[in-house]
């Protein structure tokens, strides 16, 4: 069925087509291939809902003043169960509204994951590209450094760095960047080495393209899809690891962050106050699940083995 759709695509191209239209058509084709998988669609729906929640957080709940990322405290309603007026998901021991935490926690998570993924992708792509293109001793040295980073389990490594830097949200971001860039460097290096041996790179050299042009037009676009898949998966993983770090108290107390909320609520679980931990925990689970589903779907479509057939 997939094949038919692609073949139909060829015949539809006619004299009036422009480069822009053809590119758009191909991107839509890729998108329709992604959407052909129901689990990916499920993941995508959850991702969109999460993003909507993060973006419209000030509309959904009144932002806390002066810092909306800080939990509002309602000491009178402390420890109230779900579905009480004003606190539909209940409150924590310290009177924080769980619903507010869930909604604004999405914002915190989005901020965390986008910042960390952007920084790690940029860092990893630069270092991986340098290693792959320059090769030789530079490659050996950079890859041995990467090996050192990879030899330590990522959670423990992030924990150690965050602990050294001291508890704060910024330090969690920093710790995650230090831990996560190595994967991208590895992936990018492998891709660059694979792509730079392609004959179209030789052809570009022969026609006199500059090294920068070859990198930007031939090597980078053709080696980026595995990085994109990994980045999507990491959008979920980073929130998971970040929540873990917050849970063990490496974040600032009192901020609207899912890990912090789970941590605050855990003391009450044995006393029957399940809500303060469960709802933020569920959010972490859904967030990580959704991005993993989307990442898997992207990987199926952007798989390098099917690349030439597309």
């Amino acid at each position: 069925m997939k094949k038919n759709a692609q073949n139909a695509g060829i015949d539809e191209v006619n004299f009036n087509d422009s480069a822009f239209k053809v590119r758009l058509k191909r991107n839509l084709e890729i998108l329709s291939n992604v959407l052909a998988n129901p689990t990916t669609v499920l993941g995508l729906i959850i991702v969109i809902l999460m993003l909507a929640m993060a973006i419209f957080a000030p509309v959904i709940t009144e932002p806390n003043t002066p810092d909306p990322y800080q939990m509002p405290r309602d000491w009178k309603a402390a420890r109230s169960a779900p579905l009480t007026p004003g606190h539909i998901l209940g409150t924590t021991n310290r009177g924080g509204d769980v619903f507010y935490g869930v909604v604004w926690g999405a914002r915190t998570s989005l901020k965390l994951s986008i910042l960390v993924v952007t920084l790690t992708v940029v860092l990893g792509v630069i270092i991986g590209s340098v290693a792959g293109i320059v090769g030789g001793k530079v490659d050996e040295i950079l890859m041995r450094i990467v090996d050192v980073f990879l030899s330590i389990p990522e959670l423990i490594f992030a924990l150690a760095i965050a602990a050294i830097l001291g508890p704060s949200f910024t330090n969690i971001i920093l710790a995650l960047v230090i831990v996560f860039w190595v994967k991208y460097a590895r992936i990018m290096r492998a891709q660059v080495i694979r792509i730079k041996q392609r004959e179209y790179v030789d052809a570009a050299k022969i026609m006199g393209a500059s090294k920068l042009q070859i990198y930007l037009k031939d090597i980078l676009p053709n080696s980026f899809s595995p990085v994109m898949v990994q980045a999507t998966l990491d959008m979920g993983n980073i929130v998971l690891v970040g929540a873990t770090l917050s849970f063990i108290g490496l974040s600032e107390a009192g901020i609207a962050e899912w890990g912090v909320l789970v941590s605050e609520g855990q003391a009450g679980i044995s006393a029957g106050r399940w809500w303060a931990s469960t709802f933020p925990g569920l959010m972490v689970f859904l967030w990580a699940l959704a991005f993993n589903l989307v990442g898997d779907g992207l990987r199926d479509v952007l798989d390098p083995r099917t690349e030439t057939k597309r």
């Binding site: 480069a19 392609r198 179209y200 052809a203 037009k217 031939d218 676009p221 053709n222 690349e307």
Partner: peptide, 10 residues
């Protein structure tokens, strides 16, 4: 000819 033409260029 698969390898000598960039798959992402028209």
């Amino acid at each position: 000819s698969f390898s000598s033409l960039s798959p992402r260029q028209l």
